[in-house]
Amino acid sequence: MARDRYRDRLATLRTDVVLFGELVVERYESAVAAAANGDLRAADRIVSGDSEINRRYLELEGDCIDLIARNQPVAGDLRLITASFKILTDLERIADLATNLAERTEYGSEVHPAVDLGSLGLAAGEMVAAAVDAYENDDRAACRAVAADDDTLDSDCAAATQRIIRELLAERAGDDERVRTADTTTRGLLTVRDIERVGDHAVNIAARTLYMLDSDDELLY
């Protein structure tokens, strides 16, 4: 009977991590849309909801610790719990990056026009969603596909950064215009950096899933 409860708790943990991942992806995609559209109300909702994300993260982290402490799992079960623990951390950090985007939207400066926020931001969100699906479904091929997609995202982020810098160097304007340009340039560079980091966290999730399934550290380093 106790063993049945343990198996149920493992299954529940996995389901809860997936649901948390879906919530984080939803928040991130909302933050991208708010930033692209200058939607201050949506941005404020995302910022104010960060404490709830943190609370849920700590609850699930506690579940992982409790499972290890009470049951002393080995082999595959231990890999599932430790992978879940690591994945939760990556998801919480993605939620923090969503909050960063929303806070910059609240600040009011527009995203630099060299950044295709809709395309770039949502590509990273799709990677996170794919990584969470891979964790849910034991999908090894999807884990490797997320890592491959990250190469494209990195290239696109580098290209956006180069466009921002080129436009900054070419700028010829008065004092007021230079202040506005500095604001949009800073926001653009920070936004690109954060989107790239979202992609990195998606790869981390895929890497931990692959290790959970096969003790395969191919994507960890």
Rank of each mutant, 00 (worst) to 15 (best):
M1P: 09
A2R: 15
D4M: 12
R5N: 13
Y6G: 00
D8L: 14
L10C: 09
L10M: 14
L10F: 09
R14N: 12
T15P: 00
T15K: 03
D16R: 13
E22K: 10
V24S: 00
V24A: 00
R27W: 04
Y28S: 06
E29C: 14
A31V: 11
A34R: 03
A35M: 13
D39K: 08
L40H: 06
R41I: 11
A42M: 11
D44E: 15
I46H: 02
S48A: 15
G49R: 06
G49Y: 08
D50R: 12
S51C: 01
S51L: 13
E52N: 05
R56F: 01
R56N: 10
Y57I: 06
L58A: 15
L58I: 03
E59T: 14
C64D: 02
I65P: 00
D66G: 06
D66A: 14
L67F: 09
I68C: 10
Q72R: 10
A75K: 08
G76F: 07
L78M: 14
L78A: 09
T82W: 03
A83L: 08
R93K: 12
I94T: 07
D96F: 09
L97V: 03
A98T: 07
L101H: 06
A102L: 06
A102W: 02
E103R: 15
E106M: 13
G108D: 04
S109I: 01
E110K: 11
H112L: 10
L117P: 08
S119M: 11
L120C: 09
G121K: 09
G125P: 04
A131Q: 02
D133G: 10
A134R: 02
D138P: 00
R140S: 14
A141Q: 14
R144K: 13
R144D: 11
R144V: 12
R144F: 07
A145L: 10
A148G: 03
D149K: 11
D150K: 06
D151Q: 11
L153C: 08
A159R: 11
A159K: 07
A160E: 04
T161M: 12
R163F: 01
R163T: 14
I164E: 02
I165N: 01
R166T: 12
E167T: 07
L169M: 13
A170R: 14
E171R: 11
R172V: 14
E177I: 01
R178E: 02
V179I: 15
R180G: 04
A182P: 00
A182K: 00
A182W: 02
T186K: 03
R187C: 01
R187S: 04
L190R: 10
V192I: 13
V192D: 03
V192T: 12
D194H: 14
E196Y: 05
R197V: 08
R197D: 04
V203K: 05
V203I: 03
N204R: 04
N204M: 03
I205A: 05
R208F: 12
T209I: 07
Y211H: 15
Y211K: 02
M212G: 00
L213E: 04
D214Y: 07
S215A: 15
L219I: 04
